[in-house]
Design a protein around this nucleic acid. Structure first.
Length: 239
DNA sequence: AATAACTCCAACCGCCAAATG
DNA sequence: GCATTTGGCGGTTGGAGTTAT
C-alpha cells in the first residue's frame, strides 16, 4: 500500500478541488508526486492525479452517453477489450473511468457480438462478451507482413480530432481490408493473424498478431497510434 | 412511511513498466 | 545490473441515491 499515514481519503471537497485546479494551472499536468506539497493538499499523488483526470480536467464531457458513443464503445471494446484508456482516447471528452463504469454497469451483461448483417450493427444486447486479446508474437519470415508485400501508408486522423503526429503503419497490399476488420464482423477470427514458428517470444503454431502492430508497444502490447489509420474509416463505413 | 434491494459512479487498490539514481 | 521511485492502468469497492416492496 502506498501513501503516508494521515493522508486524506474519500470524496473530494470543493476547497480541495480549487487547490488542485490552481496547482495544475500554475505548474501544469504531471509531476504528481509534487502536487500535494505544491497545492497544499493532504492527499496522495495518485488521488490528486485521478481527481484531475476524471473530474477537474477541462473539456470533460459529463452526462448520459449518446447512442453514437455507446455504439463506438461497443465496437472499440470488441476490438480492444478492456483497454479503457485507448477507448477513451477515441471518445472526445469521456474519461476511461467513465467508460469503464458505463460498460461494467450497463453493457457488460447485455452485449454480445454477432455476425454483421446489412441492417444490423455487429453487436446486440444479450448476455455474453467474448473478447479476443491480442498477443505480440514473432511470425514466419515468409509472412506477407515481412516479405515486402506490405507497404507503408500515410496516416489519417479521425474527423474533427487532432491526435498529434501519426505513426507509420503497414498494410498488406493484396488484402482490401485491415486484419482487425475480421474482429468486428466475426467472419473469420484468425484471418489476418500469423503463425509463429519458433523463438523465445511466441509458441510455435500459435496464431498471433502481426508484429508491426506490436512494435513500439505500450503496457498492453499495443501502440495506441496504430489505430489511428483506417479504423475510423472502417467504423464509419460499418455503422 | 419504512426499509430492503438495486443502480451508479467516484475513488481506492494493487500491479506493472519506465525512468531514475 | 540492481533497487527505488514514479506514472499509469484495469479491477474492485463503498456509499449515496433511487426504486421496489
Amino acid at each position: 500500500m502506498e501513501g503516508a499515514a494521515g493522508v486524506r481519503k474519500g470524496a473530494w471537497t470543493e476547497e480541495e478541488d480549487v487547490l488542485l485546479r490552481k496547482c495544475v494551472e500554475k505548474y501544469g499536468e504531471g509531476k504528481w508526486h509534487q502536487v500535494p506539497r505544491r497545492g497544499g493538499l493532504n492527499r496522495c499523488r495518485k488521488s490528486c492525479r485521478l481527481r484531475w483526470l476524471n473530474y477537474l480536467k477541462p473539456n470533460i464531457k459529463r452526462g448520459a452517453f449518446q447512442d453514437d458513443e455507446v455504439d463506438m464503445i461497443i465496437r472499440l471494446h470488441k476490438l480492444l477489450g478492456n483497454r479503457w484508456s485507448l477507448i477513451a482516447g477515441r471518445l472526445q471528452g469521456r474519461t476511461a473511468n467513465d467508460i469503464k463504469n458505463y460498460w461494467n454497469t450497463r453493457l457488460a451483461k447485455k452485449v454480445v457480438y454477432q455476425k454483421q448483417k446489412e441492417d444490423k450493427p455487429p453487436w446486440k444486447f444479450v448476455t455474453k462478451v467474448n473478447i479476443i486479446r491480442p498477443q505480440p508474437r514473432t511470425f514466419s519470415k515468409s509472412s506477407v507482413w515481412l516479405n515486402g508485400n506490405a507497404t507503408q501508408v500515410a496516416l489519417r486522423t479521425p474527423p474533427g480530432e487532432n491526435l498529434g503526429q501519426p505513426s507509420p503503419i503497414l498494410f498488406h497490399q493484396d488484402k482490401e481490408s485491415a486484419w482487425w476488420e475480421d474482429l468486428l464482423t466475426e467472419s473469420s477470427p484468425n484471418e489476418g493473424l500469423v503463425t509463429s514458428t519458433s523463438g523465445s517470444e511466441g509458441q510455435p503454431g500459435v496464431k498471433s498478431w502481426p508484429r508491426e502492430f506490436a512494435m513500439d508497444e505500450g503496457r498492453n502490447g499495443w501502440n495506441e497510434l496504430s489505430f489511428d489509420t483506417d479504423i475510423w474509416e472502417f467504423l464509419d463505413s460499418n455503422p
